[in-house]
């Protein structure tokens, strides 16, 4: 207990856990989501404390920002559909049904066992495990970038990252498939102050997103954080109705969704040959290739996240045309 920062750590950790409990136990769903967003931001803060600024950025932008927006949008849609939009509280959206006692006991047993497993695994683990530090440090000069996290994401373990982009693609295809041009809750009217704010921040967000992307080669940041920040532009445009998705934009949107996956996989294939295997970038071109991939992936991520927020595929519907 010599370090006074430990007290800050204890308080922060306690706040994180308390917010987690609160966001699940509070009755009003809207409050639950707001508490969850606070929880996410504090988690990001504690990851900054643990020297993980990239992760904190990603969590704040994607895990909390985009997810929070998705949750709030869904809540609004549910309340609109079930006709409780005007009521003061939206306690829950699913009618509760009685749960049979054996199911409760089985669930409790399952939770208990898993938590026991977690505790055993954590307490038995070495405090600071062996890692890839040395290996990564050794390979860094050949990676083409100066920031280790970017090197891991886009060079050493690029295969994982490609598949992660594929997961995003699968998500947007699935979402378009699931929601079939259904009418949406009417967009909230936000007023002149909001519009001024949107006009002021839109260019700033574009700059910040691009900066994060560019900076990712040597400092915390990169395609995912930059993409999430740029996705915020899409969210703002959608929210303020400056952009309304049209059925005729579907083709472009499809190309934008697959751009990152296609470019990433294409580069991975094209560099193979001449004794090299897939994903093995020639060292002299590594930086260019990585930046190219990152740039295109960023566009895909931004468009995909915005599309995930918008949800349904824009198809021609009478309710679509009727809305101003």
């Amino acid at each position: 207990m010599t370090d006074p920062v430990i007290i800050f750590d204890l308080l922060l950790a306690a706040a994180v856990v308390a917010l987690a409990v609160a966001s699940l136990s509070v009755r009003d769903l809207f409050v639950a989501i707001v508490l969850f967003i606070t929880f996410g931001l504090l988690s990001a803060l504690s990851w900054v404390r643990l020297a993980a600024p990239d992760v904190a950025l990603a969590e704040a932008a994607i895990g909390t920002g985009v997810t929070g927006a998705l949750l709030l949008k869904t809540l609004r849609h549910l309340r609109y559909v079930s006709g409780t939009l005007d009521r003061a509280e939206a306690l829950s959206v699913t009618p509760a049904a009685p749960v049979p006692a054996p199911v409760i006991w089985a669930n409790a047993a399952f939770c208990g066992l898993v938590t026991l497993g977690l505790a055993v695994a954590f307490l038995g683990a070495p405090r600071s495990g062996p890692g890839f530090d040395a290996l990564v440090a050794e390979a860094m000069p050949a990676s083409g970038v100066d920031h280790p996290v970017t090197a891991v994401l886009l060079n050493f373990r690029a295969y994982d990252t490609l598949m992660e982009v594929v997961v995003l693609l699968a998500a947007v295809i699935a979402v378009w498939q699931i929601e079939r041009g259904l009418s949406d809750a009417p967009a909230p009217v936000l007023g002149a102050v909001w519009e001024g704010f949107a006009r002021l921040t839109l260019p700033a967000i574009v700059v910040v997103g691009t900066y994060l992307l560019w900076k990712g080669a040597e400092a915390p940041g990169g395609a995912f954080q930059g993409g999430a920040v740029l996705a915020a532009v899409g969210l703002l445009l959608l929210l303020s109705r400056l952009y309304v998705p049209q059925p005729s934009h579907r083709g472009v949107a499809r190309w934008a969704f697959v751009l990152g996956t296609g470019a990433f996989a294409g580069v991975a294939l094209l560099v193979a040959g001449g004794g090299r295997v897939a994903f093995e970038y020639p060292p002299e071109h590594a930086k260019t290739l990585i930046l190219l991939i990152e740039g295109l992936v960023t566009i895909s991520i931004a468009v995909t996240l915005a599309a995930l927020f918008h949800g349904r595929e824009p198809v021609a519907l009478r309710s679509d045309r009727g809305r101003a």
Binding site: D54, D133, V149, A151, R157, T161
Partner: peptide, 9 residues
């Protein structure tokens, strides 16, 4: 260690 950071992202 950068690897877990990449994994979390």
């Amino acid at each position: 260690d950068p690897v877990p950071h990449a994994l979390v992202i």
